[in-house]
């Protein structure tokens, strides 16, 4: 079977700075997580895979074809970029429809496909509102909608859960797993192991522009659990959340920032589970944003590099 992605000795430099260093890897069909701390080379790898950058060395193929300057390949690829950038004045429906039209669909087919994609990311209710008025979670989901609107074989998702609230995050994870079950190949990047783990067991570990390991996530997981995990929660009632987590097992420390709570936990699974329950019940008001600095993952990677 032709691998979905095959990279052979791929290197990419930004002037004197190396972005990717002699990477050779094959990605098979299914969901694959690309895990690494910020600055590890995840985005460079994603950009190379999506043909936005050209390898300085080596070759990179998608479905056996080169991707740089091969626009035809984008019929088979859907890409959800990391950046929070949109045509803010357009409505979600207009934007997804317009991008579907760029894929070669006629107006009617593009409208139908956009409606279908928007429904799949649960945004029908706000589809006719301007993107500029969307919450962070909605913006992430509309990005996912444009990535799937042309029903691609390979989905490349760069930090798709970044900034989503717990419910949105859970919904997005379920969606990605569902797409994987439907036979799509998905490459999803994140610097949060917990996120990747909830989608797939198959990971590529990347650090300092190199693929350190590929395979089962559980081994990494064991290492991660030995390091505290930091979570930044922007919410309407951070003090209420603080009270909830004060006595929660595994929580090491709590810190308040303007409209936000920063939690350090040694048991991220239990922590995220409880946070999702609180978000669903609304006991502490709406939770607007959830991010996780990658300090803990950095520590693990340092350990891996050393070992």
């Amino acid at each position: 079977m032709t691998p979905v992605i095959s990279a052979a000795h791929v290197s990419k430099w930004y002037g004197q700075v190396i972005g990717l260093n002699d990477v050779s890897v094959t990605v098979q069909p299914g969901i694959t997580g690309l895990l690494g701390p910020n600055g590890a080379g995840k985005s460079t790898f994603m950009k190379l895979v999506t043909g936005q950058l050209q390898p300085d060395k080596g070759s990179l193929r998608i479905f056996g074809e080169p991707v740089w300057r091969n626009p035809g390949i984008y019929h088979r690829i859907g890409f959800c970029p990391e950046q929070d950038a949109f045509y803010e004045r357009m409505t979600g429906r207009e934007w997804v429809t317009a991008l579907a039209r760029l894929g070669g669909m006629d107006e009617r087919r593009a409208r139908d496909a956009a409606a279908e994609a928007i429904a799949r990311v649960d945004l029908e209710e706000v589809a006719d509102r301007r993107i500029g008025g969307y919450s962070k979670g909605m913006r992430q989901r509309i990005k996912l909608a444009q990535a799937i609107v042309h029903d691609p074989e390979l989905l490349i998702l760069d930090e798709p859960l970044s900034g989503m609230d717990p419910l949105g995050r859970r919904r997005a994870i379920r969606m990605i797993r569902e797409w994987g079950r439907q036979g799509r190949s998905i490459l999803v990047s994140s610097h949060i192991l917990h996120e990747i783990e909830s989608m797939t067991a198959n990971v590529l570990l990347i650090s300092s522009g190199r693929i350190l390991a590929e395979g089962d996530v559980h081994r990494i997981r064991d290492l991660i659990d030995e390091h505290p995990h930091t979570v930044y929660i922007r919410a309407a009632d951070p003090r209420g959340l603080g009270r909830e987590f004060l006595a929660h097992p595994g929580v090491i420390s709590l810190r308040f920032e303007p409209n936000a709570l920063v939690v350090e936990t040694a048991a991220p699974d239990a922590f995220y589970e409880r946070l999702t329950e609180l978000a669903a019940s609304g006991a502490c008001g709406p939770i607007e944003e959830l991010t996780s600095p990658d300090d803990n993952l950095q520590a693990v990677f340092k350990y891996l590099v050393r070992s």
Partner: peptide, 21 residues
């Protein structure tokens, strides 16, 4: 080598420059 083929509903591979423009 596997060729890029359009999915159902998508336009032909290599949409012309003018149409795409």
């Amino acid at each position: 080598m596997e060729q890029a083929t359009p999915r159902p509903g998508a336009g032909p591979a290599g949409t012309g420059v003018l149409a795409a423009s």
